[in-house]
Design a binder for these strands. Structure first.
Lengths: 203, 203
DNA sequence: AATTTTCCGTACCGGTCGGTCACATGAACG
DNA sequence: CGTTCATGTGACCGACCGGTACGGAAAATT
């Protein structure tokens, strides 16, 4: 057995990327630490030295997921700076593109909240914080487009987004996720149209 | 061989209800068979004689979840027979009531799909079938209300429903789920208004 | 009462779970 | 050279995982 003394990628890094793929594809609860280190070409002590516990590794994976989310969110939004409605719709475009890809497994952060209902789980907290950030970001955008009820519009859009994530797992590429953008358009239209208010409830 | 129908609480029955509560609250993957039988006051052989395997027990639990769903769906819809728009909104009322309850854990069927991505899992199949039924039911209603694009409207509503389920877990009782009904109203309005079509894409 | 049929519990299986230990190895750097 | 730091080795842990062989209790049937 020749020692292959691997070069660049440190063990911790290999473990993190491997764990990330497995957690996302199969679910964090379904994957054991033994499988992670085996597929990463590493060993358990390396995992525990670098991350402390499986739960912390999950939290770290979810932080990366949140970062990736903002990366593609910002990328979608950036070309339309100053036009919040166009920004929102551009995001729904990339959302549609992602959620209708075959084998898409939804949002890793939302999935983690389903897998770990205990409020104390470190991964759950990462996910909850991220979704609060997203809600706030959507509110900023709906306020900037002078929606009549920015909070309510933002929440409606968030429902569509989360719905797209999970229905993509339920129905595959021909699911309701494909209707997310047009629904978003209708919601935005309803909240910005000058005509009579179609939804006279309180915000 | 007349019916057995003794009114005694059979072990299998106790196991099923106990497992149902645990699966729903904690997630199926988080619960072991030992915990189920212990809390049900039964033993493992009773579980395996009655249900064959843990996966089949999960499938059975999900069938019950689907039944319960249709029970409250039909109950909400029944008083407004003949008025599909009122039926839909009545369902969104009970949905809101449920999803804004403290400690609500979302839809057991959607949660199961997140926990079990493998298409072959018997529980997943129950969940996927049920959601296909729901999609069809929504389409029937949107068609009955003469929506311009019944499929697209139904899919938009389904996104809101699923979004409400999971955001209730993410945000608790003050989450976006409270905005589901008004968003549904806006979507319905957009698809049934006589004025210009706000969403000229294909169904 | 005796027997068949239905139901259920004791005890146990091999495997895997997350996690830890002491120690060896090897490259990097001064 | 020797030290430091990161990593691998391999054994080990107790708890728990899903699953089962087998035999006893309890009804229903005769």
């Amino acid at each position: 057995m020749p020692r292959k003394t691997a070069e660049a990628p440190r063990a911790a890094e290999r473990i993190l990327t491997t764990a990330g793929e497995l957690f996302y594809r199969e679910g964090a609860r379904a994957i054991g630490v033994d499988e992670i280190v085996a597929k990463a070409g590493a060993t358990k002590p390396s995992l525990y030295r670098a991350f402390g516990s499986k739960d912390q590794l999950i939290a770290r994976y979810l932080q990366d997921q949140a970062e990736q989310f903002w990366a593609y969110f910002d990328a979608a939004v950036e070309p339309h700076a100053g036009d919040p409605k166009a920004q929102l719709l551009a995001f729904f475009d990339v959302l549609t593109e992602r959620t209708t890809r075959k084998g898409y497994r939804g949002c890793g952060l939302s999935n983690a909240v389903v897998e770990y209902p205990e409020p104390s789980h470190p991964g759950r907290q990462v996910a909850v914080d991220h979704k609060a950030d997203l809600r706030k970001r959507l509110r900023d955008l709906t306020r900037a487009m002078d929606a009549r009820k920015p909070k309510k519009l933002a929440d409606g859009l968030l429902l569509l987004i989360e719905g797209a994530y999970i229905t993509s797992q339920l129905f595959g590429s021909d699911g309701p996720a494909g209707a997310a953008k047009s629904a978003a358009e209708a919601l935005i239209e309803a909240h910005t149209r000058q005509a009579p208010d179609p939804n006279p409830s309180a915000a």
